[in-house]
Simulated assay, not measured.
Amino acid sequence: MLLLNVCRANAYGTNQMEHRVVVVTGAGGAIGRGIALALARAGASVVVNDVGVSLAGEGGDGSVAERLAQEIKAAGGIATANSDSVSNWDSAQKIIACALDTYGRIDAVVNNAGNLLDRFFHNMTEEEWRCVIDVHLHGTFFVSRAAATHFRAQNNGAYVHMTSTSGLIGNFGQANYSAAKLGIVGLSKSIALDMRKYGVRSNCIAPFAWSRMTDSIPANTPEELQRIEKLKKMDAGKIAPMAVYLASVAASAVTGQIFGVRANEIILFSQPRPIRSVHMSDGWTPELIAEVAIPAMQTNFYELERSPDVVSWDPI
């Protein structure tokens, strides 16, 4: 058990989370668990949300959230359990209502709930596509939207969304997951733009960590096995400090950003911006595009790379 300080002093040197209420979805897994524990240790009252299903969405064990909430309370923190699904509009409303009914307010949402149904694109079924989009992208929207009314009314609030380099860069066999995770980036930026005037912030974290999500990565070659061994060195608990910071008032000037956390590294990711332009005064034809435009831009094309090809250095 991770012990909390019973006087609830902030482990990060300030009292930024004292009296703040945070919802953490998917809190039963390694990353979500670490974030929920860290938030409680930092002084927050935490709604621990998890439906208790497998990565493929099978089963359903409400005691997963309850056990973590009890652990937090036994160690001196404040927490309540919730097992409503993020993937449905009405049940997502209940997650936020749980925070309001229990603590009377909501200050931050950590959208961490996730599932995984990997399949090469040409073999992926409609069900495999919809299931992952429903949890990651729809779930992030539903829970965020449920909190938005309250954030707007109080002129304050913070969203922390989990994205992935599978969406930011690419990976094999994850068209559903990659599309959802890149969609979350666009959603986060839209929230940041639309709600800035209400003092609401929205940021993304791309976590590098060993968890049940990464435990499903196939390892059939020496290179894949080596990658798995690197991932195993990345403690899921290392993601928590960034999530706590982004949920706190200390991050009041930080919004619309994408951060990566990889062991002891914090990475700021770039966002799409124009890098090259070509102009034809009389307009373009397909032939001129082939003859002039593409050769002029081709040196700036991105390679067809995967996440481990780009973030290839050893974790520190």
Rank of each mutant, 00 (worst) to 15 (best):
A250I: 02
I96K: 04
I96C: 02
V86P: 00
A250R: 06
N111D: 08
L187I: 01
I239Y: 01
E126D: 03
V200E: 07
V244T: 09
A9K: 03
V135L: 05
K73W: 01
D50R: 05
K181I: 13
V53W: 11
S144F: 09
I31M: 15
A148Q: 12
W284A: 04
V310L: 10
T102G: 07
R33S: 12
L68Q: 04
N123I: 02
E303W: 08
I258H: 00
N49V: 13
V278P: 01
I316N: 07
R196N: 13
C131V: 10
N155G: 05
D282H: 14
L4F: 06
A44Y: 12
D194I: 06
E305P: 00
L2P: 05
M17N: 06
V24E: 02
G29M: 04
V135D: 03
A108C: 11
A240S: 15
V261F: 11
S45D: 03
L187T: 02
V47W: 11
V200G: 00
A192C: 10
R33F: 04
V21R: 04
M124Y: 01
M280E: 15
E128T: 02
G237R: 07
W129C: 07
T25H: 14
C204G: 10
T163M: 08
A247Q: 08
A240D: 10
S190A: 14
L3E: 06
H138Q: 04
G199R: 06
G173D: 13
E58W: 00
A293M: 03
N264R: 13
S54F: 14
G28T: 13
Y12Q: 05
V310Y: 08
M234V: 06
D309V: 09
L4V: 07
A40E: 06
R67L: 10
G76Q: 08
K232H: 14
N10C: 15
G157F: 14
P272D: 01
I258T: 09
R20Y: 06
V64D: 04
Q16K: 11
A179T: 14
G28L: 13
A247P: 00
R262K: 15
D118M: 14
A148H: 07
L288M: 15
S91C: 10
D134N: 14
A56Q: 14
D101I: 02
H161G: 00
Q271F: 03
D215H: 15
S63W: 12
S87K: 11
A206F: 13
E66P: 01
L2C: 09
M124L: 14
I133D: 01
N112F: 03
S281T: 12
G139L: 05
K73P: 00
G260D: 10
T102M: 08
A79M: 08
I217C: 00
T140C: 08
N10G: 15
S202L: 09
D309L: 08
P315N: 13
A27P: 13
A243G: 03
A81L: 07
S178D: 14
M242H: 00
S91H: 15
S45P: 02
A206Y: 10
Q16G: 05
A247L: 08
G167L: 12
E303P: 00
I106M: 02
A81R: 04
A56N: 13
M213P: 01
I258L: 01
H161K: 00
N115I: 15
G28K: 10
A38N: 08
E127H: 09
I294R: 15
L68C: 05
G104C: 12
I96R: 03
G59C: 13
I184V: 15
K233W: 09
E126L: 02
